[in-house]
């Protein structure tokens, strides 16, 4: 990772907000359109690192040790979803899952539960998009199970629908597109976590 610049004046709350990720590529279906730019851009990686490091700092301060592995894993997927395009079905599925799990956690507090329920309904996908299976929020259209298999669709596509977030309700074409984007961000998250492990590991005396 590139070293951050050092400033003599320390303004703890004056750091500039991270640059937003690149806008989502144009989805025009013209044959002459060039393929959309990869979302694996440096700004997207910085956004990913920002979200995940902020979550790690919070976990380090507030989460008890036995709960940290699970909380870190959840933070990894949430950071991925936040760094990616919000219009992606897999990001909506992950963030919706996150919001609903939080809603269950604070069921004791009625006021916060009401606010979280509103947030859940607010974060539901627009009616134009297919809702993911299992997402039973009131604002989402009713899910009628996966669409019928199209002619020429391989049998392995159903297995892919099960492991890609939000994939259960996708058409074959959308499934391929979402899978590619999901793999791209999942790989970037793994690379980020690996570099953090290398960074925080105690120095080995035998290494150069």
């Amino acid at each position: 990772m590139a070293g951050g610049k050092r400033t003599t004046a320390r303004h703890q709350h004056n750091h500039p907000p991270p640059p937003p990720p690149n806008p989502s590529p144009n989805r025009g279906r013209g044959v002459a359109d060039p393929p959309p730019a990869s979302d694996d851009s440096p700004s997207s990686k910085r956004m990913l690192a920002f979200h995940f490091l902020r979550a790690l700092a919070r976990i380090h301060s507030t989460t008890p040790a036995p709960r940290r592995p699970r909380t870190i894993r959840r933070a990894a997927y949430s950071s991925m979803a936040r760094a990616a395009s919000p219009r992606r079905a897999w990001t909506q599925a992950l963030l919706l899952r996150r919001a609903r799990s939080r809603g269950v956690a604070v069921v004791g507090s009625s006021r916060r539960a009401v606010l979280l329920r509103r947030r859940v309904s607010a974060s539901a996908p627009p009616p134009m998009l297919r809702a993911s299976a299992g997402a039973t929020s009131a604002a989402a259209p009713p899910v009628q199970g996966p669409p019928p298999r199209q002619a020429g669709e391989p049998a392995r596509a159903d297995a892919l629908r099960r492991i890609v977030p939000g994939g259960a309700g996708m058409e074959y074409c959308s499934l391929l597109d979402e899978t590619a984007d999901y793999v791209l961000h999942l790989r970037a998250q793994v690379q980020l976590m690996q570099s953090l492990v290398d960074l925080f590991s105690p120095p080995n005396p035998t290494s150069n």
Partner: peptide, 13 residues
């Protein structure tokens, strides 16, 4: 890998 690295980050933390 995300699961394994989460465990390792937790141990390092």
């Amino acid at each position: 890998e995300v699961d394994d690295l989460s465990d390792r980050l937790s141990d390092l933390m």
